[in-house]
Simulated assay, not measured.
Amino acid sequence: MIRKKILITGASSGLGEEMARRFAAQGRDLALCARRVERLESLKDELQAANPAIKVAVRALDVTDHDAVVRVFGELRDELGGLDRIIVNAGLGKGAKIGTGRADANLATARTNFVGALSQCEAALEIFRDQSSGHLVLVSSISADRGLPGKLAAYSASKAGVSALGEALTAELAKSPIVVTTLLPGFIATDMSGAAGDSAKMTATLDVGVGAMVSAIEKEANRAALPGIKWQGIDLALRFLPHTWTSRFV
């Protein structure tokens, strides 16, 4: 099934911005959300210049404002004449060791990555249940597999919540016309990954990483660790091997 009308949050940079370019090149109509609306307007101009046949709608959105999420998703659905796929991508990578006086960074990450994702799922599934169809995509992280120490503790915990939410919705909606996909990216080159200090040797290019994400989304897999077999193996190791074997990797 071709999902023609796609909403992407966190679309002003990184994975969301590149996914928008990929789907635009495939002729999909796009609804793009982010806090930085000026960057969305620039991206809209770029996408429509390269792909004149598509429609692109943009809105400013802070995903920690639940009422705004519901309102904006509804507005974009109306503007595009429906939504076939919603990609819950907006996220933060801030963090500090817990108890070191930077609770603001950890709480912002938790609110955006998990509570914000839950708000987006509420709004998305209200739309999909009403139209009896849709594809919900949650962008989690390989860090969801294992609690990570230090400054990554709140981030990995927030993404574990996203993965658990995706697993719960996959089970609930398995026999319905609504499909749920949870993506667990490893290290992909973005501004966020650079700031987090991800290993250069383990980091895929944005082209490779987003290519794998779009491929998994189009296949509508329930769960996908990516990009490539390397991250599939790491995913299995972190989930199933004893902590004493894997602790040196986290």
Rank of each mutant, 00 (worst) to 15 (best):
G211P: 10
A123Y: 05
G161K: 06
S158K: 07
C121K: 14
G186Y: 02
V137D: 11
L173P: 05
K159V: 06
S158Q: 05
N113Y: 07
A123S: 09
I188H: 05
T190L: 01
A174M: 12
A124F: 15
D130G: 12
I127C: 13
G116M: 07
G209L: 02
I188L: 09
D207E: 15
S156P: 09
L152T: 11
G211D: 11
F187Q: 03
L173S: 03
A154I: 10
S132I: 00
C121H: 13
F128H: 03
Q120S: 15
V179M: 07
A195W: 02
R129L: 13
A200F: 01
V115D: 14
G161E: 05
T205W: 02
G161V: 02
G147V: 15
S215E: 12
P149Q: 05
V137I: 15
L169T: 09
N113A: 10
K159H: 07
T170W: 13
V180S: 04
A212V: 03
S193Y: 01
I127V: 15
G166I: 08
S119Y: 15
L136T: 11
K201H: 09
K201N: 12
I188P: 09
D145W: 01
S215A: 14
G150W: 05
K151S: 10
I217K: 11
I188C: 06
H135F: 12
A168I: 04
D145P: 00
T205V: 07
A189Q: 10
V210P: 00
L183I: 09
S158R: 06
F128I: 04
S133T: 10
A200H: 04
G197F: 02
L136V: 10
L125D: 13
E126W: 09
G161F: 04
L165P: 02
E122H: 12
M192F: 01
V137Q: 11
G147H: 04
G197V: 01
Q131P: 10
F114I: 05
V139E: 01
V208T: 13
S140W: 03
D198R: 06
V162M: 10
V208S: 06
L138H: 07
N113D: 13
S163V: 11
T170V: 08
L165I: 10
G211N: 12
A160N: 11
P185N: 05
A200E: 12
L125V: 14
V210D: 00
A123K: 04
D198T: 14
F187S: 03
Q120V: 06
L173M: 06
I142N: 07
A157K: 12
T203P: 03
A200K: 09
I188Q: 08
S199N: 12
L118E: 12
L152S: 15
F187L: 01
E218C: 11
I178Q: 06
V179L: 09
I178N: 05
G197N: 02
K175F: 14
M202F: 07
E218L: 14
K219D: 12
S143E: 10
S133P: 01
V179P: 00
S140Q: 05
K219L: 10
Y155T: 08
T203C: 03
S119F: 15
A168M: 07
T170R: 14
P177D: 10
S133W: 03
G194F: 01
L118R: 13
E122D: 15
